[in-house]
Design a protein around this nucleic acid. Sequence first.
DNA 1: CACGAAGGGTGCCTCTTCAA
DNA 2: TTGAAGAGGCACCCTTCGTG
Length: 278
Amino acid sequence: MAEELDLGSLSAIDQKELEVFCELLRMVSGLEARLMTSSEDEVVHIADLIQKGINGAHANDTKGMKSAVVDWITPKGQSLNLHIPRNAKAGRGFNHKCTGALLCPARLDWNNVESPMEWITLKRPPGFGRFFDLITILLQPNCQIQAFKHVFTSPSSVEQELKAMHSGNACLHGMRSVTKASIAYVAMQVRFALTSAQVFSCTDLVTDSKRFYNSITKLLDETDEKDEVDQLLTWWNRQIFPLYTDSEHMPTKDSALAQIRQKCEEIKERTTSISVGT
DNA sequence: CACGAAGGGTGCCTCTTCAA
DNA sequence: TTGAAGAGGCACCCTTCGTG
């Protein structure tokens, strides 16, 4: 199907969407044959069903993570200095030091930002590109891994003591390893759960989730960083899918963290030539 | 070993809220 | 007014565990 198209004539966005569509055809056996033999109305109906599934899955993830993320950022056996309600977003974002620190971009030091208002003025300096929103949450793999498990291997798998008696999403759909897109998706969901924004929107100017997601996927797609990214994915796989991972060449947690930190430093260097401020 | 109860996960439905 | 998103709840399914 894709081979018949002139890929060069497609925009970058269209090419990306085509890749996703081809992956979908590969994952869902019989879908391509069904589409090829369906009428236009049936194809529209199938597209509606897929979109409905996407929306539903996303809504469920958002709903579940909203309350669960409070547990993940709360130290074991302790409580947060300023309580964050599990079912409300108002006290999150830059209104709270814990969520604010996690949302603060990697190139900024949250401890040296005088006030949330100062951060807001720093938030979107002109000229800053794709990496500006790479937040320090990428430096918090524990939180990310808990979130990944919550979405893909079941909420109860987040705990050390496994309580689940029913197969999770990953098991049900044959997922045996993490993907760059899944990491970006989880990061986006965690980021939204930490913000004070009430309603999720890919394109709103406050959370700008679409750009955030694209920043991470682009970062992980960089061909000149392939070795480092591969090692990072291996470490992730070991954390999420230990049964399917070859542990022999697994990087340690420290080395994986060091790689992320190095990556953020590189981003910092790339952007230092651009002045911060409005 | 067979069966039923209980616990847990997922998907779906409905209602509410809010922004366009 | 309409559509999107979140919240709550329910039904169904699967697995474990206790009991006979």
